[in-house]
């Protein structure tokens, strides 16, 4: 029994550390976290499938609150239920918390520091690059056939028309459910009692 508990503690610690690293190196909004999470959780540690992580982000993006915290929690929940979800959320938020406490004390010097300004120019460009890579990787796994590409194109048009991401996700959800009923209806063709 004791060894099982130590094993669990070790796993929590591992999830905490992985999420801490992700929080430490995420710049930008909630979706900017996906490249990091995908590298740490699916590629390096093989804790979940890319598709599962994408699903977690889709749900996270459509819930109220902080998207990055939502996404950390959903990934954590998948790995080990509610306790693990809380551990993951705390792990990903802790670097922000610690860094901001120190930065805020001397923030005027921080804002005008040329080294930090220079680093930010490089980091922002790199974030755009990592997001492009993630579009490419996700495109490979989740854009299949006319269905996937046309939904993606429609979503892209909406995004550039500044439609809120939540509505775009709900649109995808609605399309999926409508498709489900159409397929169900087709499968039951010839039986007028169906539907």
């Amino acid at each position: 029994m004791k060894s099982k508990n130590t094993l669990q503690a070790k796993n929590y610690l591992r999830v905490f550390w992985v999420m801490f690293k992700i929080g430490m190196f995420t710049f930008g909004g909630g979706l900017a976290m996906l490249p990091q999470m995908s590298a740490e959780l699916t590629e390096k540690n093989k804790l979940m499938k890319q598709e599962e992580l994408t699903d977690a982000f889709a749900v996270a993006q459509s819930l109220p609150g902080v998207v990055a915290v939502n996404a950390s929690m959903l990934a954590g929940y998948k790995l080990g239920g509610l306790p693990c979800a809380i551990v993951a959320a705390m792990g990903s938020a802790l670097p922000s918390f610690l860094i901001l406490i120190f930065v805020t004390i001397g923030y005027q010097a921080f804002i005008i520091n040329p080294n930090i300004a220079g680093a930010m120019v490089g980091i922002r460009a790199a974030v755009a690059g990592t997001l492009a890579a993630t579009v490419f990787k996700l495109g490979r796994t989740s854009l299949k056939g006319v269905w996937g590409w046309s939904l993606c194109a429609a979503a892209l048009i909406c995004a550039f028309l500044s439609v809120n991401a939540v509505y775009i996700i709900i649109g995808g959800l609605a399309a999926g459910i409508v498709n489900y009923f159409i397929e169900k209806n087709n499968a039951g063709r010839g039986d007028p009692g169906e539907l």
């Binding site: 996906l34 889709a58 550039f160």
Partner: peptide, 26 residues
């Protein structure tokens, strides 16, 4: 089925985020 509808939407949202970030930083 709902997730099959949502999954193709996510690359589009990330593409839009990338575009915004790129416009501001490149």
């Amino acid at each position: 089925s709902a997730m099959r509808g949502i999954r193709p939407v996510i690359p589009a949202l990330i593409f839009a985020a990338m575009w915004g970030m790129g416009e501001a930083s490149l």
